[in-house]
Amino acid sequence: MGISAFQSLELLERLHAYDNVPAPAVAPPPVTWVGSSLGIAGVPLLIGAGEMDELIETPTVTTIPGTKPWVLGVAAYKGGLLPIFSGDVLFRKRPYIGRARDYCMVIRRPGMYFGLTLSHVQRDLRFPIEQRIMEHEVDPDFAGYTLGGFMYKGEFRAVLDIDKLVADDELSNAAAGKISSKKGKSNE
C-alpha cells in the first residue's frame, strides 16, 4: 500500500531535517519613511504620513477682518468652519500675487485646525529611513520649520515639521497687530 501525500511531505521534512539545511533567514522589512511630496510657495517639501489630515481643493473663503495677511479667510467645510492660510504669505512674509493655489492641506492639531495653501501636489513617496539627511541647506524661509530631508531625483526635499510650524508664535496668533491692521485687512 502506498503512502499518502501527507506522509510524503512528512518524509520530505525528515529528509531535509536530516540534511540539516538551515532555513533561509527572513530579512526584516526595511524601515521606510512614508510621506507626501508637495510644495508650499514653490518650495518642494515632504509631509510625513499622519502629519496632515487631508488634502482638499482650496475652498471659497470668507475674509476675516482684523487678521494677519496670511489668513485668507474662513471656509465652510464638512459642516464646520475651516480657516485657510496662505502658505506663500506665511512663509515668504510678503504679499503674494500669482496663480491661484488650487489645493491646500488640512492640519489638525490640538487647538489648531486650519488649511494651508499648496503651490503644487505631487504624490506619496517612500524613502529608506537611513537615507534621511539631517544637515542640508534649506530655503531660509523654511529652515526653521524643517527636520532633515531626502534626495529625490538629485534634488533635496526637506521634510516639513508640522509640530514646529504649529509651535510658532506667528501662527498661533492670527489677529492683526496695529501695523498689520493698518496695512492689511480692516473691518472696513
Binding site: A49, D53, L55, Y103
Partner: peptide, 8 residues
C-alpha cells in the same frame, strides 16, 4: 490628491 487622501 485622491491617492494621498485615500492613504490618509
Amino acid at each position: 490628491v485622491v491617492a494621498i487622501n485615500t492613504r490618509i
